[in-house]
Nucleic acid binder design. Structure first.
Length: 200
DNA sequence: CGTATTTGACCAGCGC
DNA sequence: GCGCTGGTCAAATACG
């Protein structure tokens, strides 16, 4: 009903931590059901994943996580013979993670980048599955995952991993277009929100 | 025909 | 050591 959107917004310049979890916290406004307050204490009390996962688990290659592909389904040949490259040689590269908590009915928040869905897994404590997206760009290994709160289906958590190294493909030149999109997502036609590439 | 999405299988890390 | 969970890839499929 309310066309406003709640979204966490808070960037912490603390890049010293290995697992820099930049959490954004910024509420929209007069939301009585403060599910998502800037404090966000209760919002993440669900213990889903925003709070803090257990281990760093930087399984992905710190340098190039796109070409290594030494994660799960390595090629059969690799499996049989063995891995050729090695990851995580002791180097803990920081992978900034930006968590976006948005209030929208659609999980496809168009931020101007092209994302290719590469996986979907069901999350415990959540009846809704989590979608894994990856930026379709050579060299741009930015990942994004979208999860919906089982408690509030209207709340969608988008976690961005990595940083884009290329301009947006979309023609954001057309502000009107963006506005229209925002309107569509904002409440004129439904609820939602379009995040802008403020974090390049 | 090319691209994006779907779905199952697989692997690595962690807990017990 | 085994089992669980989360995360990713890869083949097949759907869609324009």
């Amino acid at each position: 009903m309310d066309g406003n959107y709640s979204m966490l917004f808070a960037t912490q310049p603390s890049s010293s931590t290995s697992n820099s979890y930049h959490f954004m916290a910024g509420t929209s406004s007069h939301d009585h059901d403060h599910h998502v307050t800037e404090g966000g204490h209760r919002s993440m009390s669900h213990g889903s994943f925003l709070g803090e996962h257990s281990s760093s688990k930087d399984g992905v290659s710190p340098t190039e996580l796109g070409e290594s592909s030494a994660g799960g389904g390595a090629s059969e040949a690799d499996r049989s013979t063995g891995v050729v490259e090695k990851k995580k040689g002791g180097k803990k590269e920081r992978r900034p993670r930006y968590a976006f908590q948005t209030r929208s009915q659609v999980d496809i928040l168009d931020d101007g980048y092209r994302w290719r869905k590469y996986g979907q897994k069901a999350v415990k404590n959540n009846k809704f599955p989590r979608s894994y997206y990856r930026c379709t760009h050579q060299g741009c290994n930015v990942k994004k995952q979208v999860q919906r709160l089982s408690k509030d289906e209207g709340v969608v958590v988008t976690t961005y991993e990595g940083t884009h190294t290329h301009p947006i493909e979309k023609s954001n030149d057309n502000f009107e277009h963006i506005l229209t999109q925002m309107q569509i997502y904002s409440g004129i036609g439904g609820s939602g929100f379009s995040s802008s590439p403020m974090f390049q």
